[in-house]
Every structure is written in C-alpha cells, then in structure tokens.
Simulated assay, not measured.
Amino acid sequence: MKFLIVDDDFDSRKLLQKILHKYGYCDIAVDGEEGVDAFRTALKEGAGYDLVCLDILMPNMDGQQALREIREIEKEFDVKAGEEAKIIMITGLDDSKEVHDAFFLGDATSYIVKPLRKQLLLDEIESLGLTLEERA
C-alpha cells in the first residue's frame, strides 16, 4: 500500500507517518503544491497512491484546491472510475462548509477532524475498502 501525507504541521505529519508506515510506504508533503506535485509524479511513474491524507488549512495551496487538482490529474491520466485514490481530508476545523466543499466540490472520500486518533483513522481507512496488512 502507498500513502501520501500532506500537512503543514510537523507533529501531524509525524503522527500520520507513525500510524501508517507499518502498513505501507509513506511519502510526505508539507503543503498542497508539494502534495499535488508528488501525486502527479507518482502517476507518471506508474505507482499511484492508494490513500492521500490531506490537511485542509495549509500555506501556498490549501487542501481544497489540492484535492480538486489531484482529481483533475487522475482524469489526465485516465484513472478509471473506482480506481481513484482514496482521499481523507483532515482538519482542525469542524466546519460544515469545509465538509460540503470537500465532498461535493472536490470529491473527497472521507473527512476526519483533529485531534487524530489511531483507531479512528485505521477504521476509516478500512471502511473505504482498503485492507491494512502489516508489512514484514
């Protein structure tokens, strides 16, 4: 399994990486621009991400814009319906407008409000149809 963690907060990135690394390979990006670049590069290399954890509030490019660009990149690369990356929007905001925009304007797969809890994240990932198996 391959993960992309996009968050401007060091502690959040570190926590996500700590939780996910035992289940697969984790790439890290510190803002939306870097996350979009990483996503495009992965598809160019034929090794797209299974899951993207995407913070909403970030400098340079916020998570909502990054989400829209990631979905456009998938269209450019003719990613088939149902094979798109699962994208979990992660934020400290419990804001219904942000939730609406993420799901209906950006086609997010899920939404989690910080503080992150390990079991909640793992349960959410599995509810999206991804099987988490610990790597050897």
Rank of each mutant, 00 (worst) to 15 (best):
T109N: 14
S127C: 04
A29M: 06
I19V: 12
L4Y: 02
T41P: 02
L105Y: 15
E98G: 03
L132I: 02
F77V: 04
T131F: 07
G35R: 06
E124R: 15
S110R: 05
K80Y: 06
S127K: 13
D101C: 10
F103Y: 11
R13H: 05
V113A: 00
D27V: 06
L43S: 02
C26F: 01
T131W: 05
D94S: 11
F39W: 11
K14M: 11
I28M: 14
K44I: 08
L4F: 04
M61F: 03
Q64M: 13
S96R: 15
F3N: 05
T41C: 08
D8P: 01
G129T: 00
L130K: 00
G92K: 02
I56E: 00
D78G: 11
Y25A: 11
F10G: 03
I19T: 03
A42Y: 02
S96V: 14
G32N: 11
A102Q: 04
D8K: 10
K75M: 07
A47I: 12
Q119P: 06
E98P: 04
I87A: 00
D31E: 14
S127E: 07
A136T: 10
M89G: 03
P59S: 13
L93G: 01
P115C: 08
Q119C: 01
V113T: 11
I19Q: 03
I90K: 06
S110C: 04
L54W: 02
I87D: 00
V6H: 03
L20E: 01
G129P: 00
D107K: 15
K22P: 12
L43K: 05
E124C: 13
A42E: 05
R135V: 12
L15V: 09
D62I: 01
G46I: 04
K2R: 15
A108K: 11
F103E: 03
E98A: 14
F10H: 12
R135E: 08
I5L: 11
A102E: 00
I112H: 01
L16P: 07
D55R: 10
V36D: 08
T41H: 13
R71E: 04
E124Y: 08
F104M: 12
H100A: 10
D9F: 13
T131I: 10
A108R: 09
G106I: 07
G24M: 00
D8M: 11
G129N: 01
A81D: 15
D8R: 11
I90E: 00
R13P: 02
E133H: 15
K2N: 13
E98N: 14
L4M: 03
A85T: 10
H100G: 02
G32Q: 11
F39Q: 10
I19M: 06
Y25E: 15
I28A: 10
G32Y: 10
D8C: 07
E69D: 12
I56Y: 04
R68M: 14
K80V: 05
G63N: 04
L67I: 03
E33G: 12
R117H: 12
T109V: 03
E98S: 15
F103C: 03
L4H: 01
C53K: 07
R71P: 02
S127A: 11
C26G: 03
S12D: 07
D107M: 13
T41L: 14
D9Y: 13
D94M: 04
M58Y: 05
F3H: 07
E126R: 15
